[in-house]
């Protein structure tokens, strides 16, 4: 059986990745009864119920939200009109997407190379390898509020304050522990013979990472990307401290402007929340295909 596997690795990676996963997925998953399906729908419905609640509230006039939220007779688009007119939609999405794109790409890349080295490469001192891994993982326990003040000063000292880099650099840094946890965890279980095959095949370090391991890690990479994008879309503490130029506002910063000290426009916030939620769900739906595409990986592990 293993010879068949190795043969598969000799196929050029591009073709290999393009192999259609679809036919395998159906056959290997067991047929399930009606009740399992019903349960899945019920659980999903319960989880989603509060989301319907926001959407309903987002169409309620502000007066109704606190006093009479079930009243369906006065539904209005006012909150959306209000939110859209007050939110700098183009600026906030433009900024956030730019920041997310750079932070997530760089963050995932540096985490992946580090995670690869920490799990697959051979250290002369094993203890150093695991110590370095724990060093990066330690960041998971750090609450963001401990970082705000020093990072602000660091940005000033590096001369990046007031630029995108003021946010990008800390976003990359705080994503590293999470990425490392996920990537090292899954890389540890990665079958060694695939690498050996590639090395025998003459692959260098770069090709090994980029063309052999990375494609096989697609479900994990997709997961990492999704979580990092979600984090950046919702990140508020750093953005509020490190952005003081209205041209640089991010989505979370702009949305928070709805919540002033003496006036809270709940309807507007709900509408804004819906406006932010929908594009993110779409992003998830797109990336999700890659999580599923990873099913082929299972076939080569053995």
């Amino acid at each position: 059986m293993s010879s068949i596997l190795k043969d598969r690795h000799l196929v050029p990676p591009s073709e290999y990745a393009a192999e259609p996963p679809a036919p395998r997925t159906r056959s290997k998953v067991k047929r399930v009864g009606f009740w399992v399906g019903a349960l899945a729908y019920l659980v999903t419905f319960l989880i989603v119920l509060p989301l319907f609640w926001i959407v309903l509230l987002s169409f309620q006039p502000s007066g109704n939200i606190l006093s009479n939220p079930f009243d369906l007779s006065q539904l209005t688009l006012d909150n959306y009109i209000n939110a859209i007119s007050q939110l700098p939609l183009l600026t906030m999405y433009g900024n956030t997407i730019l920041i997310a794109l750079i932070s997530v790409t760089v963050g995932t890349a540096v985490s992946f190379t580090a995670a690869f080295a920490l799990t697959r490469m051979i250290f002369r001192r094993k203890k150093l390898q695991s110590a370095l891994r724990y060093y990066l993982l330690a960041g998971l326990a750090v609450p963001v509020y401990i970082l705000l003040f020093p990072v602000y000063r660091l940005d000033l000292a590096l001369g990046v304050f007031g630029t995108y880099a003021a946010l990008i650099l800390p976003y990359i840094a705080v994503s590293i522990p999470f990425n490392t946890l996920l990537l090292t965890g899954f890389l540890r279980e990665f079958p060694g013979e695939i690498e050996e095959a590639a090395i025998i095949d003459g692959a260098g370090l770069f090709r090994l990472c980029w063309s052999v391991v990375l494609p096989l890690m697609r479900p994990v990479i997709a997961t990492v990307l999704i979580f990092n994008v979600v984090y950046i879309f919702n990140e508020f503490p750093f953005a509020s401290i490190l952005i003081n130029n209205p041209d640089l506002v991010t989505v979370s910063l702009a949305v928070s402007r709805f919540q002033g000290q003496y006036s809270v426009d709940y309807g507007g916030m709900m509408a804004a929340a819906t406006l932010v939620l929908v594009p993110q769900l779409v992003i998830y739906a797109i990336f999700q295909r890659h999580v599923i595409a990873g099913m082929t990986v299972g076939a080569v592990k053995g």
Binding site: L136, G139, I172, A173, I176
Partner: peptide
């Protein structure tokens, strides 16, 4: 990764 993490965390 180590440099960015050390500097900003």
């Amino acid at each position: 990764a180590a440099i960015l993490f050390s500097l900003f965390v």
